[in-house]
């Protein structure tokens, strides 16, 4: 158990527009190791949903298998959840989303769950641009099976008990950009402020919002020789852009209209303001987004922030032309063609 939660709350704990306190977005008590990065991400998800005034029961949380995939039990206790099988969260999310397009889908996975056993499903849910937030809690190892290297472990990086990784690592953000995700970001579980901004923008985005969050595993992969450790990440983190996320109902503050920023409007009307701290990178272009990532890697830096954004992103429903009414709400009336048509069908088989 990572922490003991105080049962006593301040009576007038802050409420959001729906009248809910933050507590109402929490889940069961975490059973992860104390200090595990995953818990910080859960906490960020709770804050984000609370601050965005999302109705908890309109959110669906899904996961695969792993320590990371256990976290949906630890946030959004009033939301429906689906803890599926190892590496297969994307297909379950696809089915659920196709059945009911009106809910918000948050998928949580690990680097083992996504970059190895589930890499096929990951690549294809990205390609479908399913309307969901896909979070990878990336610790460079298999936490739940006790610390084996994962496919995102950087070459040369060393876990607590292991020898240096000899294989190339897979960069899930680059894959997501290439594969067709409309929104790609990378964060660090130690930087809550950035995580919150990023997740808010991800939820507002229509289409697949992929968020890779480096999330150290304190039990197996938090030694200084590991590139997924707290110390290493803190020393090598570089923000791609300073950005702010402005929900559409909020006034746009004048600070951002000084020409140095690029406002990008999302589908729900909210805006992301990207402040270009770097030499004119255009995050709406795939090629430059990938080039930036590669450049940072060469310099042994971890690039964080929103890395890529397609403002014209079209999700699966739009591409396939499915009804605006959720399919799971339809009845015989909309779905059954009736016996008269069947008689015609019969005739064509005579």
């Amino acid at each position: 158990m990572s922490y003991v939660r105080s049962a006593i709350r301040h009576p007038d704990a802050e409420k959001n527009a729906l009248g809910y306190t933050r507590k109402e977005y929490e889940g069961a008590i975490s059973s992860l190791c104390a200090g595990c990065g995953h818990d910080s991400i859960s906490s960020a998800i709770i804050t984000v949903c609370f601050e965005m005034d999302l109705e908890p029961h309109r959110i669906v949380k899904l996961s695969g298998i792993g320590c990371s995939s256990k976290t949906p039990a630890y946030f959004l206790g009033k939301s429906h959840g689906f803890n599926s099988v190892h590496g297969r969260m994307p297909s379950v999310a696809t089915g659920a989303n196709m059945a009911n397009r009106d809910l918000i889908y948050i998928g949580v996975s690990g680097d083992g769950d996504t970059a190895s056993i589930g890499i096929g499903q990951f690549a294809h849910v990205v390609r479908r641009n399913l309307n969901m937030v896909y979070i990878v809690m990336n610790n460079g190892c298999y936490g739940l099976t006790k610390g084996q290297d994962s496919a995102t472990a950087d070459k040369g990086s060393k876990t607590k008990k292991g020898s240096p990784v000899v294989l190339e690592s897979i960069d899930l953000c680059e894959m997501a950009i290439q594969g067709g995700a409309g929104f790609v970001a990378r964060g660090f579980s130690g930087d809550k402020k950035q995580m919150i901004m990023m997740l808010k923008a991800a939820i507002s985005h229509t289409g697949l919002a992929f968020v890779d969050i480096v999330s150290p595993c304190v039990s197996f992969n938090n030694v200084p020789s590991s590139t997924k450790s707290y110390t290493w990440v803190r020393e090598h983190m570089e923000a791609s852009h300073t950005f702010d996320f402005i929900p559409y109902c909020q006034e746009i503050s004048t600070d951002y209209t000084n020409g140095k920023t690029t406002p990008i409007t999302l589908h729900d009307g909210s805006t992301i303001k990207i402040c270009k701290v770097k030499n004119g990178t255009d995050i709406t272009r795939r090629s430059s987004a990938i080039a930036e990532l590669e450049k940072a890697k060469e310099q042994q830096h971890i690039l964080t922030g929103v890395l890529y954004l397609d403002p014209d992103s079209k999700d699966t429903h739009e591409v396939l032309g499915t009804s605006a009414i959720p399919l799971n709400s339809m009845t015989e009336k909309e779905l059954c063609p009736g016996n008269e048509l069947l008689a015609k069908v019969n005739d064509s088989f005579r």
């Binding site: 696809t94 089915g95 499903q121 699966t316 799971n328």
Partner: peptide, 21 residues
């Protein structure tokens, strides 16, 4: 949805069945 393999094909059906379609 023409899936990437049968694992995903049945996963999609399960996700949708779970959701009430």
């Amino acid at each position: 949805i023409q899936a990437e393999d049968e694992l995903a094909a049945i996963g999609i059906a399960i996700g949708a069945g779970w959701s009430g379609a």
